[in-house]
Design a protein around this nucleic acid. Structure first.
Length: 480
RNA sequence: GGCCCGUUCGUCUAUCGGUUAGGACACCUGGUUUUCAACCAGGUAAGAGGGGUUCGACUCCCCUACGGGCUGCCA
């Protein structure tokens, strides 16, 4: 029988399951792309499980056949994969488990913790009209004699306690108490025999051995209802951790007008996955003053206690800063690989061997000046282009008659240089002195000649990366 | 309407009854400089409001304001 008041077990929630058995899950409904908030929820679950040698499972909540699409499922999987959040085992389809859900609903029936309700939607509306419009519906079939059951479609409703309270012990929100008279006899099995979310989620979490439910705090009230289902089946209630939702920069609920909502949009904008993980981890969670860290460090540090209770706002400036830090600390080869994947995802042509080699050679001076991949690619322009060099307006203007003359004489002087930075430095400074101009004045036409842009890496770095022949060729081209 | 949650610099946050309320991003100033960055040094900037409790409250309690969630045969 259902107890009148459901209270948390004596032992602290987190201690109910041995650490070695931590099982978390991410359970999105496939009705669109992977939302940035969903990505963070998945990240928290992943970090918690991975940091404790536990399992991170993935379940697609596709019981709503009207709104669920395979395309959305594919998009969610792509988003998670890009974020680097790997899950254990197969992806579970909730819809595939509908027979099991129905089985549990019927077991609740035999246990007397649920009942068949033959009330029609019209009757429910009539009930509300007769009471106040927010009244909790009370089914007349709750205690009806089965002998009186009509031969009509019915739903199975949870026989929820009407007195007392249901208490949730949440790792983020603390102890939250819901009066049972606020909670209705929720439907667990629809008249067409399919399960509702409230039943399916509990059955699946139980069957999958989920120990920690980390999800958005829009589910906080649901935790009370779900606790009733666990109790009705005599199952162990998991550890709850309801995390605040992410808001837009204006503090309002995140919506389309805030710009990027989908994880894949961030990928398309060229934020590196490691930077996204770092930023998202710090959004609503803190560990002292830790700001920039690797995923391994995050796994080791992450805990439920560090999760804040207030909704956090998205701040693109900080996202960029964090991403810039990660770009700078990523090993050259790995970074180049990520850039090439980015190019492919964008549908742009792959790098040629020459471009690849020059990028790798110049990565040292590129990765410390970019916050996003496109920004890095722009800085790397000098290493990617080939003659004839296309120039923007400002750089073309830098190539006036005087400058071209200087570049022309430089091509001769560079002919026999050893191509060491020190020697290039002395040649160029001497040239500037000779021309009676500061080095800055000489650097401008050099940038225009080498990259066709006015903002580039150091002229020495560019010369070193593209080599003597190409440097001289570009200077000659610009001088003519 | 009812129930529930939240509120520290502009933003993300530290603090877990006693601090000059700390860090990071952003911003401002200076430095470095070869453009753009990066980098270095310094600076501006916060406990929503009102009541309590206490020797002492950002921290505990209550009220108010504001924001959010739930209140579906959606998830």
């Amino acid at each position: 029988m259902v107890s009148q008041t459901l209270t948390p077990p004596e032992t602290p929630a987190a201690a109910r399951f041995p650490m070695s058995q931590v099982v978390t899950r991410f359970a999105p409904s496939p009705t669109g792309y992977l939302h940035i908030g969903g990505g963070r929820t998945a990240l928290f679950n992943w970090l918690y499980a991975r940091g404790r040698g536990g399992k991170f499972l993935l379940r697609i909540e596709d019981t709503d056949r009207e709104r669920s699409t395979p395309e959305a499922t594919a998009a969610i999987l792509r988003g998670l994969t890009w974020l680097g959040l790997d899950w254990d085992g197969d992806v579970v389809s909730q819809f595939d488990r509908k027979d099991r859900h129905a089985e549990v609903a019927h077991e609740m029936l035999t246990r007397g913790t649920a009942y068949k309700c033959f009330a029609t939607k019209e009757e429910i509306e009539a009930f509300r009209a007769a009471h106040d419009s927010y009244a909790v519906f009370q089914s007349p079939w709750r205690d009806a004699d089965p002998a009186s059951y009509p031969a009509l479609p019915y739903v199975i409703r949870m026989k929820a306690p009407r007195e007392g309270a249901t208490v949730i012990s949440d790792e983020v929100q603390g102890i939250v108490t819901f009066q049972n008279d606020q909670l209705d006899d929720m439907i667990v099995l629809r008249s067409d025999g399919t399960p509702t979310y409230m039943l399916a989620v509990v059955v699946d979490d139980h069957d999958m051995g989920v120990t920690h439910v980390i999800r958005g705090d829009d589910h906080l009230a649901n935790a009370a209802r779900q606790t009733m289902v666990y109790d009705a089946m005599g199952w162990t209630v998991p550890v709850w951790a309801h995390i605040p939702l992410i808001h837009g920069p204006d503090g309002k609920k995140l919506s389309k007008r805030h710009g990027a909502l989908g994880v894949e949009e961030y990928q398309a904008m060229g934020y590196p996955a490691a930077g996204m993980r770092n930023y998202l981890t710090r959004l609503g969670w803190a560990h002292g003053d830790a700001e920039i860290f690797t995923s391994d460090e995050a796994k080791a540090m992450f805990d439920l206690a560090g999760i804040g209770r207030a909704p956090a706002r998205l701040d693109f400036k900080k996202l960029e800063h964090v991403c810039g830090q990660h770009i700078a600390m990523t090993p050259d080869a790995a970074l180049l690989q990520e850039i090439e994947a980015f190019l492919v995802a964008r549908g742009e042509p792959a790098l040629t061997q020459g471009q690849h080699a020059r990028m790798l050679k110049g990565m040292y001076c590129l990765k410390e000046r970019a916050k996003t991949l496109p920004e890095l690619l722009e800085k790397a322009r000098f290493a990617l282009i080939s003659r004839p060099i296309g120039r923007d307006e400002a750089s073309a203007a830098a190539l006036d008659t005087v400058s071209r003359g200087i570049l022309k004489s430089l091509t001769l002087q560079l002919q026999n240089a050893t191509w060491e930075k020190a020697e290039l430095e002395s040649i160029l400074t001497a040239a500037a002195t000779e021309a009676g101009i500061g080095f800055g004045k000489l650097a401008q036409p050099l940038r225009a000649a080498l990259a066709g842009r006015t903002a580039t890496p150091s002229v020495y770095d560019m010369m070193l990366v593209i080599g003597r022949d190409e440097t001289i060729a570009r200077l000659s081209e610009a001088a003519d």
